[in-house]
Design a protein around this nucleic acid. Structure first.
Length: 466
DNA sequence: TCTGGGGTCCTGATGCTA
DNA sequence: TCTGTAGCATCAGGACCC
């Protein structure tokens, strides 16, 4: 999907269409999750500190992410992909690989192109948003093709043209080459994909280590045998918080770690999992990050056990100077627990259920009831003026723009934060539901047909946003 | 300027065990 | 019984991805 979060917000809010929109954390230490193409003109991009984005684009609209809303759209798109093939590998909310050959949706260049075009049309019809499609014989090339296709396009890399296409591109084009590896290669005089191939496999292994060296050399030769994998097992579950202001108080640090441990266990249980290895993550005032871990004798999803382990790990960490981030994670996952084996801990589980409810409200802001905190960008409904969204709030006032996805740009009104007519609302669908629309019945209008086979290429169609 | 959150994978050091 | 070692598990850190 193209600039997914920002595009979804623009589709949801007519007054933002054609305007610079930045979605991300709005606190003093927030970063940009997605910038609309209009905001990118000012130099704003993903992962940029929000403070820097505000300097570059002071007049842009700044919104907090609404993951539940994006997830609902994502599920619509993934439904369209699964109608093309049983082999769909989601990479994130807005991106997935599809093995078109496995689904019989494509068996040669022409049929792949047709399937890709229909998919893009269906995405637009069902979600109202644009997606880009890259078609190629392997995942790496499909990913590169989809990057080139953005925004709102389709690019096919035809078999036989791969090496010529990749050769002159920057090493940073290849997946797995980030800033550090890119620098490493540059210092060795390697700037392009061709130069990786020329350097030879042994030299790359010497420079980057065994796994990375072999993989990168293969990719430079356009070789990528990785299959599209529909079901991926979760390997770890973690939660972390960055604090607006560094925490110096050791007692407070301990309490935060306990809170994070509880949140982590809640996520773990929500996924029906347990784990053996407890990981504590601490980012200190100077941004140095350290992790400490402890492996238990058996897997657990017991909040008391995770809290205790996290507290023990914290004992071994020097936090003088302050911490800006704390995290707790669990890995070494299983779908049973040590406690299950010994049929114990039932009482403690019930205790924890009560804690879960109590923990729903963020602990930091007890002064204002949850329903009276109006988050920027979130939907609301007013008894008199109808559906709208929060444009801003502060000093006891909340400013709301009244508009819906299928209205024109709406009017702005300001209310007291405790206005009795104002309440939080769910997002409205971006495209009004119609019974005959593709996707509504689970049968998108993209032809399937039995696999013809014979063609060696796997059609990897990717749809992605950032 | 000051750098999120949730993940995956890899590497090297170290210690245990057969 | 002692010693060297291969292999594995654990731990910590780093790079990368979206």
């Amino acid at each position: 999907m193209d600039a997914f979060f920002a595009s979804a917000e623009q589709a949801s809010k007519p007054s933002l269409r054609g305007k610079a929109v930045v979605v991300g954390g709005l606190g003093p230490r927030g970063v940009v999750a997605t910038a609309s193409y209009e905001a990118r003109v000012f130099g704003v991009h993903s992962a940029m500190p929000m403070a820097q984005a505000r300097r570059l684009a002071p007049n842009a609209a700044y919104l907090v992410p609404r993951f539940a809303f994006y997830r609902a759209i994502s599920e619509q798109v993934m439904g369209l992909l699964r109608a093309l093939s049983p082999l769909v590998e989601p990479l994130s909310l807005d991106e997935a690989f599809v093995d078109l050959e496995a689904g019989g949706a494509a068996w040669d260049d022409a049929s792949a192109r047709l399937a890709g075009s229909r998919l893009r049309a269906d995405i637009r019809e069902v979600t109202g948003l644009t997606g880009s499609v890259g078609l190629a014989a392997c995942k790496m090339l499909a990913k590169i093709a989809s990057e080139q296709a953005k925004p709102d396009g389709l690019v096919v890399i035809e078999p036989g043209t791969e090496r010529a296409l990749l050769g002159p591109l920057s090493v940073r084009t290849l997946p797995g080459v980030g800033p550090a590896t890119g620098d490493h290669l540059r210092r060795a005089g390697i700037h392009t994909v061709d130069e990786i191939a020329e350097a030879g496999e042994d030299e790359l292994v010497r420079l980057l280590g065994k796994a990375h060296g072999h993989a990168l050399y293969a990719m430079a030769l356009a070789r990528d045998e990785r299959p599209v994998v529909a079901e991926r097992e979760t390997k770890s579950v973690s939660v972390e918080d960055t604090y607006d202001v560094d925490i110096h108080d050791r007692v407070r640090v301990g309490l935060e770690v306990q809170r994070l441990a509880d949140r982590c266990v809640r996520r773990l249980r929500g996924a029906g999992l347990s784990g053996r290895t407890i990981v504590l993550k601490v980012r200190r005032y100077d941004f140095s990050t350290l992790t400490r871990s402890e492996t238990l004798r058996g897997p657990t999803d017991d909040p008391g056990v995770v809290r205790e382990a996290a507290a023990r790990l914290l004992d071994s960490v020097d936090t003088t100077g302050g911490v800006r981030l704390l995290g707790v994670g669990v890995s070494g996952l299983a779908d049973y627990t040590q406690e299950d084996l010994f049929a114990q801990a039932a009482g403690e589980r019930e205790d924890f259920a009560a804690v879960e409810d109590a923990d729903e409200a963020p602990a930091e802001v007890p002064a204002v009831p949850v329903e009276r905190r109006w988050a920027s960008g979130h939907d609301v409904r007013h008894a008199e003026f109808g559906h709208g969204w929060v444009q801003g709030s502060g000093l006891g006032r909340v400013t709301v723009r009244f508009e819906t996805p299928d209205s024109g740009p709406g009017r702005v009104r300001t209310f007291r934060v405790d206005d009795p007519g104002l309440e939080a609302a769910d997002p409205l669908p971006l495209v009004a539901w119609r019974p005959d629309e593709p996707g509504a019945s689970g049968e998108p209008g993209v032809g399937g047909g039995p696999s013809v086979g014979g063609e060696s290429a796997v059609g990897g169609g990717r749809v992605r946003a950032d």
